[in-house]
């Protein structure tokens, strides 16, 4: 795409004295505008994050310099344990989302008439009509000590004492993450299933391929790029969205996003920048591994 466009503009160079037609000028900017946008609002801030993370901390801000103080602060404190824990629990969320969500995606693709499929997927967008803060906050009265869940279970005689582990713990955060991010695995799973040809399940019936083999040999390899993309999205959000542990978490039940937010509250900007840089590095590594394994460009061209 890019090369085609630059060729097109390159093609008119011999007639450079003639002003470019407005249409050509538009094409010129159509390609460059997103690039400029991404550089200004993504690449430069990202680079500045890394730069700021080695600046010296002052009382209310920071000043240019080079120190690894912030990284030391991160790696030799409880923050590292918390960060690693939040990776672990994000991973658990990813797995739960996959187990709950991917079968839904397969079901929608396989068993729902083609004309209705997109409408069914739209249903999963409905929760996003409500602000995330409200959605997450609404979990509190459900999960808390004398909340809906505990009251119901007690009244039914299933438990004697309320379960307190549901809120202000990692469990609470995981529940919130699954609730918030489940639609993403359904969307990406739905897209990923596009790579599975129409008659493949019938061929499997014909060859006598059992359900496990069908999943392992056929669905998984074909849908892998999409599943991976959805999983990375959930993982990164689990790591980065401070809101969830802020409302549902508690002592120790934090994630990288909340660590950074807390650092900002404490006016330790270099530390916040360092945490962000580490998160970014983690994400880049993940994407790189994913790309080597599955060729992520395939997500958008499933049947080429």
């Amino acid at each position: 795409m890019t090369s085609a466009l630059s060729n097109a503009t390159g093609g008119v160079t011999p007639a450079k004295s003639v002003p470019l037609a407005s249409r050509e000028r538009l094409a010129y900017w159509a390609f460059r505008a997103p690039l400029i946008f991404m550089v200004l609002f993504f690449a430069i801030p990202m680079a500045m994050t890394v730069v700021f993370s080695v600046f010296e901390r002052t009382m209310f801000w920071m000043e240019p310099g080079f120190t690894l103080q912030a990284y030391e602060n991160f790696f030799f404190s409880a923050r590292l344990t918390n960060f690693l824990n939040s990776m672990k629990y994000s991973l658990i969320s990813v797995v739960i989302c996959f187990i709950l969500g991917f079968p839904i995606a397969v079901f929608v693709r396989k068993s729902i008439p083609l004309v209705a499929q997109h409408r069914v997927v739209l249903l999963f967008i409905l929760p996003f009509m409500v602000s995330e803060i409200i959605r997450v906050f609404a979990l509190r009265p459900v999960l808390q000590r004398n909340g809906l869940l505990n009251t119901t279970l007690t009244n039914l005689g299933i438990i004697d004492e309320p379960i307190t582990a549901l809120l202000y713990t990692h469990t609470g955060v995981v529940i919130g993450e699954v609730m918030s991010f489940l639609p993403f695995i359904i969307f990406s799973g739905f897209l990923a299933m596009e790579a599975v040809p129409k008659f493949i399940f019938e061929v499997c019936d014909d060859l006598g391929v059992g359900p496990w083999r069908r999943f392992k040999d056929v669905i998984l390899p074909l849908a892998a790029p999409g599943i991976f993309a959805g999983s990375v999205f959930i993982f990164v959000n689990g790591l980065g969205v401070a809101l969830l542990p802020n409302i549902l978490g508690g002592a120790g039940a934090v994630n990288a996003g909340l660590i950074a937010t807390q650092a900002i509250s404490a006016l330790d900007f270099p530390l916040a920048m360092a945490v962000s840089a580490i998160m970014m590095a983690t994400l880049m590594t993940l994407l790189w591994i994913g790309h080597r394994l599955f060729d992520l460009t395939k997500i958008l061209t499933p049947l080429s």
Binding site: P197, K198, F199, D206, L222
Partner: peptide, 10 residues
């Protein structure tokens, strides 16, 4: 069975 198309493991 041999199907119309879209029936090979890609």
């Amino acid at each position: 069975m041999v199907f119309q198309a879209y029936a090979l493991f890609p």
